[in-house]
């Protein structure tokens, strides 16, 4: 196994809060990321994902623990580490007063690239982001999806070894998400290490080779998407709805059907290896759900199992 490009041991980050105890954003995180791997941090808002990303991105210092990026300590070698990283932040921070091409050009200059190289890279990346016809458009005039693609393109100006993506597709329509996923797959094929945070289950399943589930700054589980589902959930899930006022009441009578029953405000989830068989047993009890759906278990179920909470609250 090649040596990890990111190694975090007992990583901790706390913030001072006036008149209160320190706020613990990240608490004792340990993980490794191999070169070329696509690694995900999964968790709800406020779980500590973005804080962890900032520490990996060598912009925020850790309070305790050890962290090594590309074999270097970010506290001492911030510029060196960042020179080989690509960063796609949660919120686009392009310069709206420059046009799309200028944004790429000037960002290349930050890495000390000669002007000629910056021009070539800018054109290459505009094509990669499918924004050639918007090269001269001011960033303020671009749509959300275009800005996002431009931000990703900007993150690639220095041919980074590691690309950090913080909630890369939040706020995008489904088509724009798929275009982005396609671009990220291509990078992965080229051997770029991807580290991404998301609270979208499908995104994590699509993009991540391996992930950690984080909640309240701590790791709840770690593994590949399929192994996590295997370990923490059943093969199938039956979703039944009896109406929001009856779900809680009916759930009691469903005990024993499937491995586990979970009640959400709008539906009941029955975890089982055979969803259809479970539905038959429910109808045999004389209960007729308003709607029913049998689906494969997903990371959402894993998260629900591990934290007792839904990811998107």
């Amino acid at each position: 196994m090649p040596e990890a490009v990111i190694t975090a041991e007992s990583l901790r980050k706390t913030y001072k809060v006036k008149g209160k105890a320190d706020f613990v954003a990240v608490d004792d995180l340990s993980f490794e990321v191999a070169p070329g791997e696509s690694f995900g941090l999964l968790g709800p808002n406020g779980a500590g994902k973005s804080t962890t990303m900032k520490m990996i991105g060598a912009v925020s210092t850790r309070t305790a623990g050890s962290l090594s990026i590309l074999g270097l300590d970010p506290d001492q070698y911030g510029p060196e580490i960042r020179s080989r990283l690509g960063v796609v932040p949660q919120q686009d921070n392009l310069d709206g007063e420059l046009n799309a091409r200028e944004n790429l050009f000037i960002y290349g200059r930050y890495f000390g690239l000669p002007a000629k190289v910056c021009h070539e890279k800018a054109d290459e990346l505009l094509a990669f982001a499918q924004l050639e016809d918007k090269a001269k458009s001011r960033v303020d005039a671009l749509s959300g999806g275009m800005k996002r693609r431009l931000t990703i393109a900007r993150g690639l100006i220095n041919d980074p070894r590691i690309l950090l993506l913080d909630e890369p597709t939040t706020g995008l329509d489904p088509q724009a998400r798929h275009v982005l996923w396609d671009r990220l797959f291509r990078l992965k094929e080229r051997g770029t290490t991807l580290v991404l945070t998301t609270h979208y289950m499908d995104e994590a399943e699509q993009l991540c080779d391996r992930l950690i589930v984080v909640d309240k700054g701590r790791i709840m589980a770690e593994g590949t998407p399929s192994s996590l589902i295997r370990q923490h959930s059943s093969r199938e899930v039956l979703e039944v709805r009896f109406g929001s006022d009856r779900n809680q009441q009916v759930a009691g009578t469903l005990e024993g059907i499937g491995d586990r029953v979970e009640v959400l405000p709008d539906r009941i989830l029955v975890y089982t290896s055979d969803g259809e068989a479970a539905l038959e047993r429910i109808t045999a009890l004389g209960l007729s759900p308003i709607t029913s759906l049998v689906r494969r278990s997903s990371l959402e179920d894993v998260f629900l199992r591990l934290t007792g909470r839904s990811l998107i609250e």
Partner: peptide, 28 residues
Amino acid sequence: ITQPTLAELTAEAMEWGRKPRRRGSWYV
């Protein structure tokens, strides 16, 4: 894909960091 070793990546980062450390203010 042949991945470089960690030592090679470290050396590469040290090299890439040299110019921005010296001239970063001018880039801004």
